[in-house]
């Protein structure tokens, strides 16, 4: 065969996914600039920490969601799993279990819910949308039933450490007996998010399971015919998503030092939005952890900035809805070129 010899292509534009990430970063910078202008308190250290904390919950959910979306699926149950995991942790602490194993049990609960999602999707051949919609109701129902819909409080100081503690925090006792924070430190949730994001990136880009997740999402039939264990790959992705919903639940409930069985409603939508804004395609085969992290920050900053500017929660919904549609639209235009 005599293929025409192609001239080397001159690359003056970054590749598609880099371009998408670049535009997302610029969007983020623009948002920060606008909000600093409209509300002076926005650019304070304290508010920065608040954004970081809010984003860490969305970010943890978005990491799992990204893996699921890359397989060509969706996980609508993460908000409810987050609540159920918190409830299991709260109840077991009340029953006398120390905080760390109780939290471990909470994450395990999330993983188990995700595992069931994976089984229902791959073995019972129920579409991801329906399977995880079912799990969304089941997990929420369980969380409310187990607690009688009442919050669990007085869980002890140790329970609040993960959500409220920080590394390298410097506190000085003042002569008047009140502590003064000299350096607020790096909040644990932010560190956790960074660690999980790096781990997620590593698994997706450097490990066989990550390659299989992309293969399954890109062409499920081809992956199956090539000997990829498609069912196992999907179960793995949903289990990871469930486990990370559990981790996000620990962070959120610990931050409030209270377990709220009705926390996390509609969080799945924020996580999906973060992934999609970050360049993940709901058709599968495309997505990245770094993009989803930028997406999570865009949503976190948007929520926080709109709050600071006094925008109502209803208007926030409208704006975030428009942002998601806009991001996908821009992505489609980009792919057509």
């Amino acid at each position: 065969m005599t293929a025409p010899i192609e001239p080397p292509r001159i690359r003056f534009l970054p590749s598609g996914s880099t371009l998408h990430k670049l535009s997302a970063v610029i969007t983020l910078a623009l948002l920060i600039a606008v909000f600093s202008f409209t509300s002076p308190a926005f650019l304070s250290v304290n508010n920065g920490l608040t954004v970081l904390l809010q984003t860490s919950v969305i970010g943890l959910l978005a990491i799992g969601m990204t893996m699921v979306i890359i397989t060509g699926g969706i996980d609508l149950s993460v908000g409810s799993i987050l609540a159920l995991s918190g409830v299991i942790t709260g109840l077991t602490i009340k029953a006398g279990l120390p905080v760390v194993p109780a939290m471990g049990l909470g994450v395990l609960t999330g993983a188990l819910c995700g595992f069931v999602n994976g089984l229902v999707i791959s073995k019972m051949r129920i579409t991801p949308f329906v399977a995880t919609l079912g799990m969304m109701l089941i997990a929420r129902g369980l969380a409310l039933q187990l607690t009688g819909a009442a919050p669990i409080s007085r869980l002890g100081e140790a329970f609040g450490t993960l959500g409220n503690g920080a590394l390298f925090r410097i506190v000085e006792m003042q002569p008047n007996g009140f502590p003064k924070v000299i350096f607020p430190g790096i909040p644990y949730p932010a560190i956790l998010l960074l660690v999980v994001a790096v781990l997620g990136w590593f698994l997706l880009q450097k490990r066989q399971i990550g390659r299989h997740i992309f293969s399954v999402g890109s062409n499920e039939e081809a992956a199956r015919l090539s000997g990829v264990n498609v069912d196992r790959t999907k179960i793995w992705a949903y289990t990871a998503s469930g486990a990370l919903a559990g981790v996000a639940g620990m962070v959120l409930m610990s931050r409030l030092v209270t377990v709220q069985p009705n926390e996390g409603v509609m969080y799945e939508l924020d996580a999906i939005a973060a992934s999609v804004i970050g360049g993940a395609s709901l058709m599968g085969g495309v997505g990245s952890i770094s993009g989803s992290m930028i997406g999570a920050f865009i949503i976190g900053v948007l929520r926080n900035g709109l709050n600071m500017a006094g925008t109502s929660a209803f208007v926030q919904m409208i704006i975030i809805g428009i942002v998601v549609i806009g991001a996908v639209y821009i992505d489609q235009i980009r792919n057509k070129i």
Binding site: H212, N219, L225, S226
Partner: peptide, 30 residues
């Protein structure tokens, strides 16, 4: 070799050639 060219469109040629039988380093990384 399938009629439908069973390849994963989003992945590159090496990833497709080794799909399902990826080569790994000593540490199990791709």
């Amino acid at each position: 070799i399938y009629q439908t060219l069973a390849l994963a469109n989003h992945l590159d040629a090496p990833a497709n050639l080794f799909m399902g039988r990826e080569l790994r380093t000593r540490f199990g990384n791709l």
